[in-house]
Nucleic acid binder design. Structure first.
Lengths: 228, 228
DNA sequence: AATAAAATTTTACCAATAGTTAAATTGTCA
DNA sequence: TGACAATTTAACTATTGGTAAAATTTTATT
């Protein structure tokens, strides 16, 4: 009787795990194909085949093509959240002795995310743009918007605290974080433009990117540091 | 005989003007529909109807939907070129007495363009992203890339000259212009995100945007100014 | 006015593909 | 064995980007 219950429960769990793994398989396959052939160049049949299943099954995991495309950015958002949490903790525990250290961690967090999966990061940036939403179903656009706003609020709270703690000169916090994220984003885009679509693959491109980011970071840090 | 030649020539000219005007009509209609219903939500039949012609005629003006979509950014690129030319001339004629004036003109040029047609400007930013090209035909992507690179080179040359003239501290010019454009772009995006898709319509949103831009411009100017 | 030439409309079509449906199949547990 | 869930098969719908060709209108020329 005990074993019965156990097997019943475990089978349910296993099923759940199976489903989860299959979802992952689909996402991995979708990544490969979307990122090599583009959105328009990719059909749902392609993805189904690459993931080793059929179209109706694919549609049982993802309601629409847009939803699948969008879900490729989920890992990015998760890791972004982790990064922010880490900075927040460090700040709360008094591990920062000046503002430029925060900005450094902040930028490095973005950079590592980008380096780990440039295509996914690019997609994330793209989705942030309200303009991009023109190409998406409304429901999806709203989901993304919500998540982006949460990340925005988290980072705002970090820099507000840093100002309270006198690590950073008191300025309009919205201006500051818009400038920070904007700068990061813009530099990534410019660098990619210069090195072409395969920028990520190239060591050199990554180095140029890092250098430019350091340049911008230095400029901003200088102006923002609290001189005491 | 003279009048014959004249009428022949003028009729040809008028025809050209007609075609040009029709092209404009199409672009205006496409703008309205694309910007309200989005790319996917807009069909070529819709646009044809809105422009008061039929699909085959539409296709005689624009080879593909992507090409039409992309052509909405052309006015932006033209005006961008004008702006840059104006700055270049001012610089060559010695009308700048410090670097921050250049940066001010540079940013203001972007801002005016954005304010005049936010949707088109947004589209222009979008197209700059290599990631965006995934959704475009290769030939179009290459055209855009070429134009963006030309604008990039023009602005690089301006800031190089400014350094030679000692208006700006000597730094890596690529780092500098990537930072400038990136900052502008990023701030626009962040502001739009906050105010929603109708940001442009709102006076308040425009004011916030301008303030944030001023903030970033000040920071960058301070670091970049040549102290003598 | 008559005619030639260009542009446009009409109408019909093709091909690709997002998304659906329902019956048949397989595997899993009791 | 029988019940249940997930999957496959296989066919289908609807939309839409894009094309083709003949008919019609507009415009310019003689």
């Amino acid at each position: 009787m005990d074993s019965k219950v156990k097997s019943k429960a475990s089978s349910k769990i296993r099923r759940k795990i199976d489903k989860e793994r299959r979802r992952c398989d689909i996402i991995e396959a979708a990544k490969r194909i979307f990122f090599s052939r583009g959105y328009t160049g990719t059909t749902m049949d392609d993805i189904a085949e690459a993931a080793g299943l059929t179209k109706p099954t694919l549609y049982s995991y993802f309601k629409t093509k847009d939803e699948l495309y969008y879900s490729l950015t989920l890992p990015i958002i998760e890791k972004l959240t982790e990064n922010q949490k880490r900075i927040k903790e460090k700040l709360e525990n008094g591990h920062y002795c000046c503002g430029s250290e925060i900005i450094r961690d902040h930028f490095n967090g973005y950079f590592e995310l980008y380096a780990a999966s440039p295509e996914a990061f690019r997609l994330f940036m793209l989705f942030q743009q309200t303009g991009m939403f023109h190409r998406l179903k409304k429901s999806i656009a709203e989901k993304i918007n919500k998540q982006v706003k949460e990340r925005y609020e988290a980072i705002r709270s970090i820099y507000s605290d840093a100002m309270k703690k006198n690590l950073i000169r008191t300025v309009n916090v919205y201006h500051l974080i818009d400038t920070l994220w904007g700068t990061f984003q813009g530099i990534v885009l410019s660098t990619e433009m210069k090195f072409g679509n395969d920028a990520a693959a190239s060591e050199k491109a990554l180095k140029v990117l890092k250098d430019t980011l350091d340049f911008a970071r230095t400029i901003i840090s200088e102006s923002i540091e609290n001189k005491n």
